[in-house]
Design a protein around this nucleic acid. Sequence first.
DNA 1: ATTTGACCTGGAGTGCACTCCAGCTCCTAC
DNA 2: GTAGGAGCTGGAGTGCACTCCAGGTCAAAT
Lengths: 133, 133
Amino acid sequence: MTYSIAEAARRTGLSIDTLRYYERIELIDPPARDTGGRRTYSEDDIGWLGFLTKLRTTGMPIRLMREYAKLRRGGPATASRRKQILVEQRRDVLERIAELQGSLDVLNYKITNYEQIEKDMAGLLAAPQEAAS
Amino acid sequence: MTYSIAEAARRTGLSIDTLRYYERIELIDPPARDTGGRRTYSEDDIGWLGFLTKLRTTGMPIRLMREYAKLRRGGPATASRRKQILVEQRRDVLERIAELQGSLDVLNYKITNYEQIEKDMAGLLAAPQEAAS
DNA sequence: ATTTGACCTGGAGTGCACTCCAGCTCCTAC
DNA sequence: GTAGGAGCTGGAGTGCACTCCAGGTCAAAT
């Protein structure tokens, strides 16, 4: 089973332009073509694109994804460097998560402040009625 | 106590150019100036910059930070909108963390694969010796 | 046979968040 | 009084990751 570029885009969540762009910058190998010269993406192509998008969501720069892609073409001999890239990326992701959690604390603190302000405002609004009663 | 732009940069981790840039785009109010026309950042300025950088690390676009900054100038009347922005950002951060955790699973899976390959390689290297012994 | 719609190419354009630069002023130290 | 260093301004340039476009091809449907 193969997929047209439109189907590949739908399945990967990337745009058609991005798929062609990834090919241009040699992030992916040129997919096969049909008789009309149109790209046909294999299941493997889709899987690789899926992995790449996972790497993208970790914030890996395309530069590094390209290196990984290039190594992948180099076969088993490049496995240790590839592993190294992933291990480093995992470290980055863990750092990023910790950083986000830190920011989350700040957000929660600020939000709590605003809730306190809301409570105070409600108190001020209620007060005159209490005084009137 | 006030700080020169160089000190403010050091304290906030932003560059001098970024500080001036933030001022230009009205993300921060123009700081006071000394007699020579040089910027002098107050403790409050530094605190606000610190909060802004926290927001930046959450991935909040500068566009939105500008809106928040503008609201802040608007005083208490804008508190509920400001809170709303922070609550939405908190949701985004939680999503982002979940997404990163998902990517982490993929990375761990791949890394485990590479480790398995390494073990297999070691086995292949060891085998001839075993045969020889 | 022609219209339609998906896809093709090379190249230009976009938005974001900075970052750098030239040419200037101002204060401090010698 | 002059040399050096920090800071000033307006504006241009950068890197990244797309995104869009014009002008063309190709196959299927009418």
